[in-house]
Design a protein around this nucleic acid. Structure first.
Lengths: 137, 137
DNA sequence: TATTATTACCTTGCATGCAAGATAATAGCG
DNA sequence: CGCTATTATCTTGCATGCAAGGTAATAATA
């Protein structure tokens, strides 16, 4: 019997828990959650994505996405617009408020990454990220 | 600006998401969630732990624990008992049903770990686990 | 073109996960 | 002993996260 302390699912869950906690603390000043910030990061890469495409890029199902999107529209970080060509598609656009917050958020993300990987050398960081991508597949 | 694809928080979240998904699928046959299984793993290590001690060992706050415990008592995986000496303390004990499920659950956990780390050598597995423990601290 | 299949999105129900506050029991201290 | 501080647990409110099912719009096909 493997101790749960050596179970990779547990180790991933708790590392993720700590990482989420650090980022969450830094984002609190902006009134944003890590998921909401991730949502906007997808749009910084390409504004006007459809809800489905955002979900594919950040690997989140549309059920969860719907709630996140609702809250972000309410908080005026983004606006939704039905596609002119395909009436099924909802496109999402960043607001001015979101664009203004960009530098601060980018900084929060960078500081978080540095803090989380403080004990890692550059090589270790790269190896660690490769490992994370290699989990299952 | 770091792409979210290189953000360690995102990488951890998604690796955890995949890991959770694999374990969840294997546990479905038992009618258990990964969290409920983890909860029982803590009790296999030491039966009769208090709610608070379980939370410390699996790094979960009591707010979340309360709900998990309720569902596990209802499903008769565990029973709760107020400590005889300290009336504030609730102790949790595994039921016969839980003990019978043990071999199957241990196997599910092992299969999950092998599947998730299929591409890893033994050295890489050890290094990866060390990295996960080294995230923040 | 009429019908069927597919697609995009949404809604509901259930299970975490955390912050903040409430409650009850015990411990500590004069 | 009586009062205060601490501790253990529970409750509520909000935000994910997923499974399953619903709806509307478009695509595919006869």
């Amino acid at each position: 019997m493997i101790s749960f302390r050596d179970n990779i699912v547990f180790l991933l869950a708790k590392a993720h828990q700590r990482a989420q906690g650090v980022l969450k603390a830094y984002l609190q000043a902006f009134g944003l959650t890590p998921m909401q910030c991730l949502f906007m990061e997808a749009l910084w890469e390409e504004d006007g994505l459809s809800v489905g495409e955002i979900g594919r890029r950040i690997a989140l199902d549309t059920a969860t996405l719907a709630g996140v999107l609702d809250r972000m529209v309410t908080a005026e970080w983004v606006r939704r617009e039905t596609d002119q060509v395909d009436g099924r598609v909802t496109r999402v656009y960043l607001t001015e408020k979101a664009r203004e917050a960009f530098p601060g958020l980018a900084s929060a993300i960078e500081v978080t990454n540095n803090e989380l990987l403080n004990n890692f050398s550059l090589e270790e960081k790269l190896l660690f990220k490769r490992f994370l991508r290699d989990v299952k597949d």
